[in-house]
Nucleic acid binder design. Structure first.
Length: 221
DNA sequence: GCCCAGGTGGGTA
DNA sequence: TACCCACATGGG
């Protein structure tokens, strides 16, 4: 079996094992997508959602409104999400930059060449490759496959990326195995696999191939 | 009480 | 370039 065939088989198994949530097909407005993604950094979904709801109750989620908002009020709204001092500063500051530099709009994510759009996003404070790629994929359906902590770990354990690969290498490796139409599904499904079977520090989950509960036990090594 | 969660940026060698 | 660390709440 070639690497490509193996990668395809992995995706097939994942599709059988997990069902993609409904929201996956809905594309989201890029600015609110960016704010949600910043709030999600190193935080669980529940707290991210609470923080986003609280923020939306206090403020209209637009660059103009958030650029002018009081940082302390943003802090109070998003506190439940954790890392709230950093994130509140980041939200205000990136909003200000979007107003001043991009005329208050992230519409460039739809139109600019992918690498340019990516660079512009990553130049915003608090926006690294993961956050930029999530916005590009989820709101503009651009062909990038975001690598979060689960995707990174699981990809390496399944041999979809080299063990010492950095963010870009993991992303390009995964993208080379799948057609662009599958990037979203692969991203979500690898996360679901990581959450369920391949915990970071649980020795029982040290390798998917030795955990008989894991669907990849049947793939071996 | 301890560990983890859909990262990023700043510092050090 | 390659690590190391702060950031911080809530849930299991």
């Amino acid at each position: 079996m070639t690497e490509e065939e193996r990668a395809q088989q992995i995706l097939r198994i994942l599709r059988e094992e997990f069902s993609l949530p409904d929201w996956v097909s809905a594309s989201k407005e890029p600015f609110s997508s960016l704010i949600r993604t910043v709030l999600s950094q190193a935080t669980n979904d529940k707290n991210r959602d609470k923080a986003f709801r609280n923020l939306r109750e206090e403020f209209e989620i637009t660059p103009k409104v958030l650029a002018e908002a009081d940082v302390k009020e943003i802090e109070q709204a998003i506190r439940v999400g954790g890392l709230y001092r950093n994130k509140s500063r980041v939200i205000k500051e990136l909003s200000r930059i979007i107003v001043e530099r991009f005329d208050g709009s992230l519409d460039f994510v739809y139109s600019l060449p992918l690498e340019e759009a990516r660079k512009l996003l990553m130049a915003l404070p608090g926006v690294g490759p993961k956050t930029a790629d999530v916005v590009l994929l989820f709101s503009a359906n651009r062909p990038v496959l975001p690598v979060d902590t689960h995707v990174n770990r699981v990809s390496k354990r399944l041999g979809l990326a080299r063990p010492n690969a950095d963010y870009e290498h993991v992303r390009l490796s995964l993208q080379s195995f799948y057609p662009a139409k599958d990037y979203l599904a692969a991203h979500i499904l690898l996360i679901m696999l990581g959450r369920k079977y391949c915990k970071a520090r649980n020795p029982m989950h040290g390798s998917c191939s030795v955990n008989m509960l894991c669907p990849f036990a049947k793939l071996g090594g």
